[in-house]
Design a protein around this nucleic acid. Structure first.
Length: 482
RNA sequence: UCCUUCUUAGCUCAGCUGGUUAGAGCACAUGACUGUUAAUCAUGGGGUCCCUGGUUCGAGUCCAGGAGAGGGAGCCA
């Protein structure tokens, strides 16, 4: 008979009907009660077998991790933990799972709590836990919500290339893409590697950003966005960085910095709302999980709000919007600065903010998301639009509590001469980027865009604290398992 | 890359100023029980104390080097 997903069964509409359910055993209690999960819901379905009429050899094979198919009558549960349960009449075992830990290949997920660090070592199986099941269902919903948000606004989803030949963006170290023999590469007369003989006839890398290509799209479709993998070969070892991550980069013609900020805030609130509406049970679970974890910490280190409260607080308040210059004033005048509690004391205008400063603004001063704008031009990228003061650019960073920078964006410099001058000042070779400069030559217009680090968004919405726990198979320095 | 903490049973950890047979909880196995909720009760098995070298009568414990992991910083999304 046709299989029904557990999420559907748990709605309770199929009561008193015979149903078939397939999934993986979480626990088997009392020789009778199977907690079955098929990933459609955080909740398990209880399947009750009659051990007196079931073959012992079958009962012994109902172990954590085993994949089974059960058929039976869906009835109101006599027990307290659930409303419905299946009274099993037929059981088929698709795949056994060795539970005896003394055997060489036993199922690594025991019916007990495991640390996130341990689960990270078995990332191929961690989806089968409550926490990671919830995280990855939420991740899916957020991805879908992003597409929905932009689609509903008439944006075109532009697939920008993953292999690029431009290394002029300065967004970070790049991974080289080559088919040359690394032991014996062809050399030029100058004894350098001759990339003219490489696959593409030139030196190529994995993309660090689709923004420049995105701008080309915005100059035709008005509104585009990209959503794809991005690569940085930085030796970053933190809970917020990955070598391979997913980035969303919208680019809008006729947008100035204010429009850009408004869109970013609207998008973040939309996708968080969408996840709360469509993954309520998962987020409830994650909120409780975080609450239980926080209870282990000393009181001073605990966060004041639960995950759910944090998400609702974020939705219910306008993001604080201040300029870099205002931020420097706030920081300089803060007691924190005067009492020299910062490791880096704020003295003057022009220095980049350290993460301790960003955290102070977000978590202590404003206590909500903060959009910082108009940074000094010398600490920002060449393509950002120069302000009238000659010192700052129309940049914006959105800072989230616990995460730091979740979005970086700007109004772009649409004036050809100003852009070329800035590129020359910053030693960006213009000859490689003529295609980019063409947008400024042929029908240039004011435009703006931003980049959202998808995993950082997932971190915020799930309350997880390590970015390696919100991407299926994390790639970080010295780690490329699975 | 820098700073810092850690590495002991399948998992999570305890193991004091170095001392002779290295412990706990959970998991696992066996049995009992049979409407449980990570069931309960009883019994049991299970260790290259991360690796290499050193100090010492004696090292899980001290020292040096290495490997791996966590947290923080930088870079950023």
């Amino acid at each position: 008979m046709a299989r029904t997903k557990i999420k559907e069964i748990l709605k309770g509409n199929l009561i008193d009907q015979t149903v078939n359910v397939k999934g993986w055993v979480r626990t088997f209690r009392n020789n009778s009660f199977i907690a079955l999960n098929d990933g459609s819901s955080i909740h398990n379905l209880q399947a009750v077998v009659n051990f007196e009429t079931t073959d012992d050899n079958i009962l012994k094979r109902i172990t954590p991790g085993a994949c089974i198919s059960v058929t039976g009558l869906l009835i109101a549960s006599q027990g307290k933990g659930q409303t419905v349960e299946i009274k099993v009449t037929d059981i088929e075992i698709y795949g056994d799972s060795e539970s005896d830990v003394s055997k060489s290949h036993s199922y690594p997920l025991q019916p007990k709590a495991h640390s996130l660090e341990y689960l990270r070592e078995i990332a191929h199986l961690r989806f089968r836990t409550n926490t990671f099941g919830a995280v990855f269902r939420v991740r899916h919903t957020l991805a879908y919500a992003i597409h929905k948000f932009f689609n509903d606004k008439g944006f075109v989803y532009l697939h920008t290339p993953i292999i690029t030949s431009s290394d002029a963006e300065g967004a970070g170290e790049m991974f080289r893409v080559t088919t040359l023999d690394t032991k014996n590469p062809p050399l030029t007369d100058e004894k350098e590697v001759d990339y003219k003989q490489d696959f593409f006839g030139k030196s190529t890398n994995l993309t660090v950003s689709g923004q420049l290509e995105g701008e080309l799209g915005a100059m035709a479709f008005s509104d585009v966005y990209t959503f794809g993998p991005t690569f940085r070969a930085e030796n970053s070892n933190t809970t917020r960085h990955l070598a391979e991550f997913w980035m969303i980069e919208p680019e809008m013609a006729f947008f100035d910095l204010k429009d850009n900020m408004a869109l970013a805030e609207e998008m973040l609130k939309f996708v968080i709302t969408y996840a709360l509406e469509n993954n309520k049970e998962d987020i409830d679970f994650l909120s409780q999980r975080l609450f239980d974890e926080e209870k282990q910490k000393p009181q001073a280190d605990r966060s004041e709000l639960t995950l759910l409260e944090k998400l609702h607080f974020c939705l219910g308040n306008e993001f604080a919007k201040i300029t870099y210059t205002e931020a420097i004033d706030i920081l300089r005048e803060s007691n924190h600065n005067k009492k020299k509690k910062f490791q880096y004391i704020i003295e003057g205008w022009g220095a980049d903010l350290q993460s301790e400063h960003e955290r102070y603004l977000v978590e202590k001063h404003f206590k909500k998301p903060v959009i910082l704008t108009d940074y000094p031009k010398d600490i920002k990228s060449f393509y950002m639009r120069q302000n009238e003061d000659g010192k700052t650019v129309a940049a914006m960073d959105i800072l989230f509590p616990g995460i730091g920078e979740i979005i970086g964006g700007s109004q772009r410099e649409e004036r050809l001469e100003k852009l070329e001058n800035r590129m020359n000042e910053m030693n960006i070779p213009t000859h490689d980027l003529q295609w980019y400069l063409d947008t400024r030559r042929f029908g240039t217009c004011p435009h703006a865009g931003f980049g959202l680090g998808f995993e950082r968004l997932v971190l915020f919405v799930t309350g997880m604290t390590n970015i390696r726990d919100v991407i299926a198979f994390p790639r970080t320095p010295n780690n490329c398992e699975f």
